[in-house]
Amino acid sequence: MREEIQRIKEKTLAELEKVNLMEELQELKVKVMGKKGSLTSLLKQMGGLSPEERPIIGQVINEVRTQLEEAWENQARNLEKKALARRLEEERIDISLPGFYLPKGHQHPLSKVIEEIEDIFVGMGFTIAEGPEIETDYYNFEALNLPKDHPARDMQDTFFITEDILLRTQTSPVQVRTMQKMKPGLPVKIIAPGKVYRNDDDATHSPMFHQVEGLLVDKGVRMSDLKGILLYFSRQMFGESREIRLRPSFFPFTEPSAEVDVSCMLCGGEGCRLCKGTGWIEILGSGMVHPRVLESGGYNPNEVTGFAFGMGVERIAMLKYGIEDMRLLFDNDIRFLEQF
């Protein structure tokens, strides 16, 4: 019987070596140690042995059993390792393929710039006012100290609907509309973004464009405050190291009037192509609100003063994003829009 045990052991170990799959391993185990397995049936034959032999053979069988189980476990671990290695190999992907495409929309650069300007001024305590794009001659011109046939009206080529109704040429009419609504409340502290229209069309002019108007009316507003607010704005918009300079200018609705230049964001003021070698870039027009405009708005110019400014959104967008032809902004080619 010992030989028989030994034979089963060797045969099983030899077969074990050849096993490749977990299922075969299981089958083999049943074949040897299952209820009808070869080793189990030897155990059943032990009844025919002498009482002296029985414990000895029993021990031998148990030893073999332990040995075989150990071998099985070893082989099982081996197989698991192999299976894992195979899976890793099989599940290998081409990591160079493009990742999943997440659709993404884009904000138009003009609305993006307007939002940014709004955020800066809202942060400084300004509220956002709006006014109609189709305006009366009164609000667009007369209330702004531009009577009929004033030569300064030539500065703006106007689209007319009737003799007295027109497309606003500037966001400035919102100044007077807001003042009339708020009087005698103080301070009047608004910005007014919106579309404006002039009869002009080339690489630097569009018949429709956008402006942001600003207005602060209060007791004791100074031109130095205008400079302070615009310096803060320019640094927020164009970078912390920007400087500004004011140049005398003319707008019928401000006096004194100033053109505002910001130090060039490309060269920092040394002179380059963008700033045409001057180191400065014109970004907006501004000034102290003309007494007649304060009167149009219902305020007494002896009691309050104010400043106003107006900037072209297209110009700022072009500076900010390096856009050379204004017409791109209204062409709406998606290859252009998808950059923003």
């Binding site: 709004e118 001024f121 809202v122 942060g123 400084m124 305590g125 300004f126 509220t127 956002i128 103080l186 301070p187 502290k189 602060l216 209060d218 007791k219 004791g220 507003v221 100074r222 031109m223 130095s224 405050d225 400079k227 302070g228 607010i229 310096l231 803060y232 300079r245 004011l246 140049r247 005398p248 006096e255 004194p256 009037s257 100033a258 102290m288 003309h290 007494p291």
Partner: peptide, 30 residues
């Protein structure tokens, strides 16, 4: 005010300092 501008421009706008408005603080919002 026309004379004020005249004076400011002849002296030079560079002489105008930068200050912040001294009036009441307001909360800005949409």
């Amino acid at each position: 005010v026309d004379m004020i501008e005249e004076i400011a421009r002849v002296i030079g706008y560079d002489r105008i300092p930068t200050t912040l408005p001294a009036g009441a603080q307001t909360g800005g919002r949409r």
